[in-house]
Write a protein that binds this DNA or RNA. Structure first.
Lengths: 232, 232
DNA sequence: CGCCTCTGTCACCCAAACGTCACAAAATAT
DNA sequence: ATATTTTGTGACGTTTGGGTGACAGAGGCG
């Protein structure tokens, strides 16, 4: 299961994609315009973007560029939907950083297979992200290992994901709802102490680095953005 | 830059591959049939062959065999393109001397990455990859032989490939999905204990070196990156 | 100062994940 | 053809991790 953003102005196609992707067990976000799409991409941090190149307000290539330029969104895999051979040529070189493309008209089945192919690699192991080194904390995403002051600590899968997620959204408060959604991949069901408990365990395990995770009362949790001195 | 021969009967895919490989700076030759392909391979001596297994006139395995048998063409690296469901040949192709295979549909980016990986090895040439010597473990990739403490152990084809794959991705966790795709060459349908079982058999056979293969609960398996307690 | 809400903490129980085994199917050798 | 090896799969037992609810403590607000 992954979070997939579809940017496509043609309503029919949008519906078809949405339905089929959901059917395949994915969470689907949709946008009919480039501007909305960009905003959604930044806010919701999807795993994969299905991008129509021909949009009413801006070209898909611009979107592509914009996303790849920003480190926070550069990790999003992009699958381009393109209609014309001419467009194809420009994109195909992957100068834009797209992972794959499909030429319209395509069969839905074909598309789904490609989506799987991309997610198979992308979701679990994206080496494209910046390494995590923050104060006494060091994280190897690919190895799934964490060190505090050069001493390795063992985190469980969820603890690891929680840490990485918070760190990647440094200085932005994450509500429990958002965390449940992104780390656990479940719908918000806020009556539990699940998040708190895991934050507690995480803080405990990472010792000194536990201070980097700040509680924002009434809102959620936040990874500190700088080491000592407070707000600038 | 390298010279790459593509043997693929599906016209669309052929075009896409040709374009992208050229874009990546390679010289590309194409053939739609096995016979033409063999001829080209002999005449032009490419560095790499992208080989579809399902061809109109002859099977890809035959081509593979023919090329590997002739010392003049035995040095050509081969990357097999195989469709899902087209069984066989993961092991067969491997034993025939293919360097890698990719399951259709693949993302173009993924393919390009693999092509690069193969060519990179090819540069240093000589059966290519760095030799595997790690602790008490020693592996001869070409001879398909494995020693533990100078004592040879017999591995089956899959066990061997599993070991090599894990080792080549030292210190990077490989999920079962990825392993199924890369070692077995099948789409991920995880409801089985296939990977576990093979890891178990492998660990058993390689004795002391079994410890090098670490389980990362909730994620996958990982080959240790150094021998003892490590920091860094 | 007191109340109320939100968070930290703990211990328990269940379920998911893994290791292991045995067996059947498939491939391969004889 | 039969014998043997190799592989995939379902069942089972074990372990670990994670969700839950209760409770205490802290922080905020009037």
């Amino acid at each position: 299961m992954a979070r997939i953003l579809v940017i496509e102005d043609e309503k029919d196609l949008q519906k078809v994609l949405e339905f089929n992707l959901q059917q395949a067990g994915h969470e689907v976000l949709t946008a009919g315009q480039g501007k909305d799409g960009l905003k959604l991409a930044r806010e919701r941090d999807p795993d994969l973007l299905l991008l129509d190149l021909m949009l009413p307000d801006m070209s898909g290539t611009e979107i592509c560029k914009a996303l790849k330029k920003d480190p926070r969104t550069a990790g999003i895999a992009i699958l381009i939907l393109t209609a014309k051979g001419e467009e194809l040529d420009r994109v195909v070189g992957f100068e834009l950083g797209a992972d794959d493309y499909v030429v319209k008209p395509f069969s839905v089945r074909e598309l789904l297979l490609r989506v799987d192919a991309i997610l198979r690699r992308g979701v679990s192991e994206q080496g494209g992200q910046p390494p995590i080194v923050f104060g006494c904390l060091r994280v190897d995403r690919e190895a799934h290992r964490v060190w505090i002051d050069d001493k390795e600590v063992e985190l469980t899968a969820i603890e690891f994901k929680l840490l990485v997620t918070l760190h990647d959204r440094k200085n932005r408060v994450q509500s429990r709802t958002v965390l449940l959604n992104d780390v656990w991949g479940i719908e918000a069901d806020i009556t539990t102490r699940t998040v708190d408990t895991h934050v507690k365990r995480l803080r405990e395990k990472i010792g000194a680095a536990g201070d980097y995770i700040e509680t924002v009362r009434g809102v959620g949790y936040r990874f500190a953005d700088s080491l000592e001195g407070d707000t600038r």
